[in-house]
C-alpha cells in the first residue's frame, strides 16, 4: 500500500529520520512505538506531506506503485491518506461541519455529510455543544481526539495514521474510540503511533515497529508490544 524507500528526514539540517525502509500492506494494523523523540510523529508528518520536513536525497514514498514523494498534503489526502494529529490546533471560527463540507466539496452531498457527522458524533459521545463550537477551542485532550476520529470516519480514507490517539484520553473515551475504530477497520490500513499497549488490546496489531534515534530498530508481531510494556525499550532494543 505504502512503501517507504530510504526515507531520511531533516529539520534545519538536523537528521530526524534515518534511512527508513518499510512496506505497509493493505488491510493491516501497525503499531509504531518508541521512546520520546525517536521520530514517530515525524514519520507521520512525512507520510502526510508536511512542508517543513525536508526529505533527503534518495528518499521515496511510494503509494500503490505511484511515487508521491513530491505531492502536497491535500493530494495525498485525495489518494487516501489520513492523519489524526497528536495535538490538533484550535481553529477559531471554524466548525467541524464546515471543515468537512469544504474538504468533501463536490464529492459528497452536504446534507449527507451533516447527517453523518451527527450520527458519528453520537456514537463517539461528542456533545452537541462541542460539535457547534470552533474546532478544538476549549476542548479537553479526549474531546480533541474524538474530533479527530470523527473526521477520520467521515472523510473515509483507507490509510489512516493515528498519532497518539490514546494520549490524554481517559479509559472510557479510549474504549469508545478504539472499539469504534475496530468495527470500521474493514478495507483500511491503520498505523497506530503509541506509547502504551492499552489501545492495542482493542486493536490487535499485525506488526509492531520500534523506532529509536530516528531509525527503525525492530519489527515484530503483537507480542513485541507486550514485551516493551513489561521490560521497556532498552531491554527490547538490546540495552542500547
Amino acid at each position: 500500500m505504502i512503501r517507504l524507500k530510504n526515507v531520511s528526514v531533516a529539520i534545519d539540517e538536523k537528521p530526524i529520520l534515518k534511512n527508513i525502509n518499510f512496506e505497509f500492506e493493505p488491510g493491516k494494523i501497525y503499531a509504531v512505538m518508541g521512546p520520546n523523540g525517536s521520530g514517530k510523529s515525524t514519520l507521520a508528518y512525512t507520510i502526510m506531506g508536511h512542508p517543513s520536513y525536508e526529505l533527503q536525497q534518495g528518499s521515496r514514498i511510494i503509494m500503490n506503485g505511484e511515487d508521491i514523494t513530491e505531492k502536497e498534503a491535500n493530494e495525498r489526502a485525495e489518494k487516501g491518506i489520513f492523519l489524526s494529529f497528536q495535538s490538533p490546533l484550535a481553529l477559531a471560527g471554524v466548525k467541524v461541519q464546515q471543515l468537512l463540507r469544504l474538504a468533501l466539496e463536490g464529492k459528497k452531498d452536504p446534507v449527507a455529510i451533516y447527517k453523518q457527522v451527527r450520527e458519528v458524533a453520537k456514537k463517539l459521545k461528542i456533545s452537541d455543544d462541542l460539535l457547534n463550537r470552533s474546532l478544538n477551542e476549549g476542548a479537553s485532550g479526549g474531546e480533541k481526539k474524538k474530533l479527530e476520529v470523527l473526521q477520520a470516519v467521515v472523510l473515509d480514507k483507507n490509510f489512516l495514521i493515528f498519532d497518539e490517539v490514546d494520549t490524554g484520553v481517559d479509559v472510557d473515551a479510549l474504549k469508545t474510540i478504539a472499539q469504534y475504530l475496530d468495527t470500521h477497520r474493514e478495507g483500511k490500513t491503520y498505523v497506530i503511533i503509541t506509547h502504551y499497549n492499552r489501545i492495542l488490546h482493542y486493536l490487535k496489531p499485525d506488526k509492531v515497529l520500534v523506532l529509536a534515534g530516528g531509525e527503525l530498530k525492530k519489527v515484530g508481531d503483537g507480542s513485541l508490544a507486550e514485551e516493551i510494556e513489561i521490560n521497556g525499550y532498552e531491554s527490547v532494543l538490546g540495552g542500547k
Partner: peptide, 28 residues
Amino acid sequence: GEEKLFYLMSRGMKKSDAESLLVNGFIE
C-alpha cells in the same frame, strides 16, 4: 500559520481553500 494550513490540507483541501476558511473563521 503553516501548521493550521497543513492541518486543513491534510483533510483534502487546497491551500487557497484552507486560507479562505481560516480567514472566514477569523472574522466569524
